[in-house]
């Protein structure tokens, strides 16, 4: 195994009674990389996380996390990984500090680190506040702070910004990019394609338990950019979409010469439209 491969899935399948929830899932996650698992609800994202983290046993295939087969891992693996699920709870009646210090005790982490993490997520001034009285965004930041308290090598995030307002979501994104800079590998599941485009080095498009596309967001978008188009805003505020033909190229060149173009954008597909193209279904369906 390569030195920096922290997670490796080979032909993972999972069957619940008669339903095949995951089909032949294979992929790798490297140190300092953010991998996005993109798919609609019920695509198998959470099931994948549960299999990797040993909360669920796969029907077939092999999952290796930090070099250990996921079927052989025990509770000690959670000292090296962090898990944030879509409904990770906090102890409402305890203070923000207590919420972290309890887990610091479990992971033998110093109070200095608790302080450091609280400052990172900008909750230090709320240390003595009851966690139940925090706003939704602050609670999510607290959950994230708890998950990274012990400096895990891999962080699993299941829909971390689901239901959050855009400002809070941006704050969470900033935090994740900082963690990536520190060398943490992040496995992110989301159905928010903008989030995936912004954060992920690689994305796997998951549909009905199957990876239908895999690559960097840019690679995927360019791969499906068959009908190249350009959106042009002219000085008279006229907005035009032009296909890439020799006639239109001449037109654009002419407008440029005459300085008539206010702005110009290429119209490659977004991850959402790639998903739609590949599966015939929208991500939020």
């Amino acid at each position: 195994m390569e030195q920096n491969v922290l997670l490796q899935l080979s032909h993972i399948s999972k069957r619940f009674k008669t339903d095949l929830a995951l089909k032949d899932i294979s992929m790798e996650l490297h140190q300092g990389e953010i991998l996005g698992f993109l798919g609609p609800s019920g695509a198998g994202k959470t099931t994948t996380i549960k299999i990797i983290t040993g909360q669920l046993r796969q029907t077939s295939g092999e999952a290796k996390i930090l070099g250990t087969d996921s079927t052989n891992i025990d509770a000690s693996i959670y000292e090296k990984i962090g898990v944030v699920s879509d409904n990770s709870g906090i102890y409402d009646k305890m203070t923000v500090w207590q919420n972290l210090s309890l887990f610091a005790q479990i992971w033998r982490v110093s109070n200095t680190r608790v302080e450091e993490v609280l400052k990172q997520v900008e909750l230090y001034e709320h240390s003595k506040k009851q966690a139940g009285k925090l706003s939704k965004g602050q609670k999510q930041r607290l959950v994230l702070a708890r998950a990274v308290l012990h400096k895990p090598r891999i962080l699993f995030l299941d829909e971390p910004t689901s239901g959050l307002d855009p400002t809070t979501a941006v704050e969470i994104h900033r935090m994740l990019l900082n963690l990536k800079q520190e060398g943490m590998a992040i496995f992110l599941t989301t159905h928010n394609m903008e989030e995936a485009t912004k954060l992920c080095d690689k994305v796997a498009l998951l549909y009905q338990g199957e990876i239908v596309e895999f690559g960097s967001p840019q690679e995927l978008c360019l791969k499906y950019n068959h009908d190249k188009k350009y959106q042009v805003l002219l000085d008279n505020q006229e907005e035009i979409v032009l296909e890439q033909t020799s006639e239109n190229i001449g037109k654009i060149a002419e407008w440029m010469r005459k300085n008539r173009i206010q702005c110009i954008h290429s119209c490659e597909p977004t991850l959402e439209s790639v998903f739609l193209k590949v599966t015939g279904k929208a991500l939020n369906a």
Partner: peptide, 14 residues
Amino acid sequence: EKHTLRVLMTSSIT
């Protein structure tokens, strides 16, 4: 009910 049990069980508690 408050979704803290799974958090605890995924924090290396046996």
